[in-house]
Design a protein around this nucleic acid. Structure first.
Length: 584
RNA sequence: GUUCUCUUAGCUCAGCUGGAUAGAGCAACUGCCUUCUAAGCAGUAGGUCAAAGGUUCGAAUCCUUUAGGGAACGCCA
């Protein structure tokens, strides 16, 4: 698709050269869509040119405007308000634009950048169910992967399981001593909830023993038994490993059900158990190279005081690895596997410090990929009574949350009574589409950096700036298109009205919005841009007749415009991993 | 203590690299379904963009300081 801005910019540069014998950089020329309360399609800021022209903004605008009108064919006329030069394009420009996109399902998809990006998100523990915090992470990560892909990158989606360590041993210990051989199957319980229950049971038992004996939690027999279990695991105790694998598998299978239910996926899953030894080796290599050092007590450390951070331990005095060490190993393995240009981690902002440290550690090791390591930080989800903390039982379970929105969606849809002709299976699918649409949009419309306070008492909205409203707009358009199809028009001379021009302008700027969202790493920009489009279309829908318009040309143009809007909505919804229903 | 981050209408949020009179939704109040799906549309009301300085032709946006919320600075992950 050919865009008009580069043409306007290059002619403005020439105008400045010819009229004022001055030089101006393309980057200094500011062209935006004209705000809807003014007449025009594109606006050129005149202020930056005034220094060169040495004339008043109005006079400069007049001269540049006259020059552009004369040299750029697509411009029909111009008007000047203060230092703003509003350019109005010929109808033919918009008619051609509409014809170009009406049959394109993927208008908004950017050209291939040739860049390979790997993106990690979710990162669950293998001993607990997923909660609301994971939901935001999954949705952000997955839609970010779609967004980066729409921006022309080759994206690979990764997940990593924190599948080893003391926490896992706690649930294993509790299961071994309390479950009497019960399994998720025999207990008829989802595997992650089943295992999570034993993890919680451990905490209860430890607390009871600690209080009964008046000793610290870590001094209890149960804590000691658990610690021994971790050592046995690291030593490769066969029986224990078998149990570990079995219990982890219960959780993996269960998590997969949740991933499928919410509609997200991964291309590859990493396991910390398979990479922590590599990290350890890399740290030892760094020690040999002299980029790390050994402290008096034997711990291997890195000195980051020159970078404004502290001294960080990489290996404990007893030689065992820590979280950071594992991440160093995983980072290396990811690079070995994919050789990406950029290696991204979607992780909450509570780990900002950790990722700064990780990047510095990799840079000090001289790893070639270190500069491409980026932390995509986002705000955490909180409840009205404070932070989500599974340890304190202050959680919203992911499966419950999804179930809840599905029920509300079913209820609302039944109230509306518009889709009674659908089969039971189709209805179930529609409830899921709408319920998940509401949930996903609710979370993704908020800028990633901001924290979200989620009140489970207040149900998620289905009206206004919501997923269902946007889905509804799509369904309405589909209803029209079922009655008459879109088709490009040759030699189109239709005069677009104000609202139609507004819609065309929004569609024209869709690729810019995708670019901006990908640069900012924020799907919220896509969501808000899409809302603007849906809102404007709704206004249009009620203000003008489409199928019943006065003449055939008007009807076909309006159908084509509607089709292009539906395409753009569907494309944008897809980025947010929200389905676009054809009726609701 | 140090660093990071957030603060825009009663509530939840937009406002992209500084640009025109700061916009939506929810909640409240008025209207609009015998005409393409009313999960909609139109309207009323609601603002010292946390505060003060600074840079600029121009600041919600950039800089400094202050206040308030959150987080991190673990040999937890």
């Amino acid at each position: 698709m050919n865009t008009i801005e580069p043409i306007l910019i290059s002619h403005t540069i020439e105008a400045v050269k010819e009229l004022y014998q001055g030089e101006i950089q393309a980057s200094q020329i500011n062209i935006t869509a004209t705000r809807k309360e003014f007449d025009g399609d594109f606006t050129l800021m005149i202020f930056p040119l005034v220094k060169i022209s040495k004339k008043t903004p109005e006079q400069t605008a007049e001269e540049i405007g006259a020059y552009l009108l004369k040299h750029v064919e697509a411009i029909e006329n111009y008007n000047i308000i203060k230092g703003f030069l509003n350019l109005k394009l010929q109808n033919a420009f918009w008619a051609n634009f509409l014809s170009a996109i009406v049959t394109k399902e993927n208008h908004g998809q950017l050209a291939n950048t040739g860049k390979k990006i790997i993106l990690e998100y979710t990162g669950p523990n293998s001993n607990k169910p997923l909660h609301l915090g994971h939901v935001r992470n999954m949705l952000l990560g997955y839609s970010l992967s779609n967004l980066l892909s729409a921006a022309g990158n080759d994206v690979t989606r990764l997940n990593i399981y924190n599948d080893r360590g003391i926490a896992i041993c706690k649930s294993m210990y509790a299961w071994q001593t309390q479950a009497h051989g019960l399994t998720p199957d025999t207990a008829k319980e989802k595997g992650d909830h089943f295992v999570g229950k034993y993890y919680a049971l451990y905490s209860k038992l430890e607390k009871e023993e600690s209080e009964a004996k008046g000793i610290k939690p870590e001094e209890t027999d149960i804590a000691k038994a658990c610690k021994k279990m971790l050592l046995d695991w690291e030593a490769g105790d066969e029986q224990l490993i078998r149990l570990w694998k079995e219990m982890n598998q219960w959780v993996y299978d269960a998590h997969q059900v949740t991933f499928d239910s919410i509609g997200i996926s991964f291309d590859k899953v990493y396991y910390e158990s398979e990479n922590y030894l590599l990290g350890k080796q890399m740290v030892l290599d760094g020690l040999a190279k002299g980029v790390y050092y050994k402290r008096a007590d034997g711990a291997v450390c890195v000195d980051l005081t020159a970078d404004g951070l502290d001294e960080k331990v990489l290996l404990r005095p007893d030689g065992t690895s820590i979280y950071l060490t594992q991440d160093i190993g995983v980072a290396h393995q990811r690079y070995e596997d994919y050789h990406p240009d950029r290696s991204l981690y979607v992780v909450g902002n509570e780990q900002d410090y950790h990722f700064k440290v990780l990047k510095l550690c990799l840079q000090k090791l001289g790893e070639p990929y270190a500069d491409g390591v980026e932390h995509i930080s986002y705000g955490l989800v909180e409840l009205p009574n404070g932070r989500l903390k599974s340890r304190e039982g202050n959680i919203v379970d992911a499966d419950d949350l999804i179930q809840g929105v599905l029920e509300i969606a079913a209820e609302r849809t039944k109230e509306q009574g518009k889709v009674d002709s659908l089969s039971a299976t189709e209805l179930q699918k529609l409830y899921r589409t709408i319920g998940l649409g509401a949930l996903k949009y609710f979370i993704l419309k908020v800028a990633a950096a901001k924290r979200i306070v989620f009140n489970p008492e207040e149900s998620i909205d289905f009206q206004g700036n919501t997923g269902p409203f946007i889905q509804y707009t799509h369904a309405r358009i589909c209803s029209i298109l079922r009655k008459k199809e879109a088709a490009p028009i040759a030699n189109n001379t239709y005069e677009f009205n104000e609202l139609e021009k507004e819609l065309l302008s929004l569609l024209y700027h869709l690729p810019h919005a995708i670019k901006a969202a990908a640069d900012a790493m924020d799907p919220a920009i896509v969501a808000n841009n899409m809302y603007e489009l849906a809102k404007t279309y709704s206004k249009y829908y009620s203000a003008y007749k489409i199928l019943n318009a006065e003449d055939e040309s008007t009807i076909q143009n309006r159908i084509n415009l509607s089709k292009a809007v539906a395409n753009a909505i569907k494309f944008s919804l897809n980025i947010l991993s929200i389905d676009a229903p054809e009726r609701m």
